[in-house]
Design a binder for these strands. Sequence first.
DNA 1: TCTGGGGTCCTAGGACCC
DNA 2: TCTGGGGTCCTAGGACCC
Length: 414
Amino acid sequence: MIALVDVNNFYVSCERVFNRSLEKTPVVVLSNNDGCIISRSNQAKLLGIKMGMPLFKAQSIMRQHKVMIYSSNYPLYADMSNRVMQLLGKLAEDQEVYSIDECFLKLKRTNYLQHGRLIRFKILKDIGLPVCVGMAETKTLAKLANYVAKKNPEFDGVVCFSEIDLAAQNRLIKKIPVSELWGIGVRLAKRLNEIGIDSVYQLKTANPKWMKQLFGINMERMIYELNGIQCYPIESLKSDQKQIICSRSFGQTIDNFTDMADAIATFLQRAVAKLRKQELLTKEMILFIRNNPFTAKQPIQYSIRLKHAIHTDHHEQLMRLAIAGLTQIYQHNTAYHKAGIILLDLKRAQHVNQDYAAQTMRANLSNTLDAIRSKYRHNIITSGWQSKDGKWQMKQLNKSQRFTTSWQELLEAC
DNA sequence: TCTGGGGTCCTAGGACCC
DNA sequence: TCTGGGGTCCTAGGACCC
């Protein structure tokens, strides 16, 4: 049996753990730069606030209904996520962490409904977060069961498909639009609708071979999964990342090379830190800079692919490469709004031949820098390209405290 | 005025090999 | 006049997920 456990309105629920007065009011959490709405409480959903809506378009609803607005607080959410995942790991035979707020579990033979309720109870009691649990024989069906649990309060947050007889199951999924399925986005949904497939039930009973011809291998697999035939196993061992991205929109536009180099250097430092943390090396990067496509007359994006001679995690080498690349693509007289670095061709350090002596020296240097940065703060030592406080830094006006990861910001009890 | 960030997989087409 | 078959690798673009 596979269970899909997911936290309801995850970011909003995290904020509520530390501020109980938010429980009864509409709350939203914003994306970086306070740009879009990316998490909503149920009350906020009822007001018609949509996922991904830009804040400025929802401003009047916000004021009218006194919606509480939070900037995103990723250190807090990441820490809460770790707590949830650790606890879930203890309640299952095997576990695949699928996203920051979602997890697949492999369950031993048991009373599934009872176990689902136990999961829900433990996470709420020990961590303070509400979850829903969907259970079935395949991942696709477990996701669907979770959807049913969310949408129908009478199930009390826990649905197990194998406890519902087939006729009732089919009645249920005849009412669910195919667009709600895991793996069906807006474009596939539109194409499916065009050939007369509107409900999950219709897709379940479609001919898999024929659908493969029309839509590719994943559609065939999805149909098998809907019929209880497993195509996607639980993957408890996380495979190595294939790319690492660090990109940001700026708090204010950049129109000079110095500020841009500052931003790029900072993004590169963060990307390389992620690289080193996973003990990976990179050989290739993409650097891009662009203007604001929403306001500019002409959308502009310049990018360059840069190759290094060998696989490396050496920050200074990669920095030289990045700055050289930036010099090549940077054009004056453009108001830049966003930039980013993508590290590619990642390999495990032990799978690559390296210059042993040079590598050891570099590792010592990098480890020392990492240690100093983590002891004090991440920008205590920077490269010469970086300023103390780049004016491009993102806007975050309503950020809650890092209640669980910073001694200075602990919750105070009076 | 104000519109996020970070990932994965599949497919088609081109270059190249024997 | 007639112009094969089988393969790999790379890349860009499209689709999806949270």
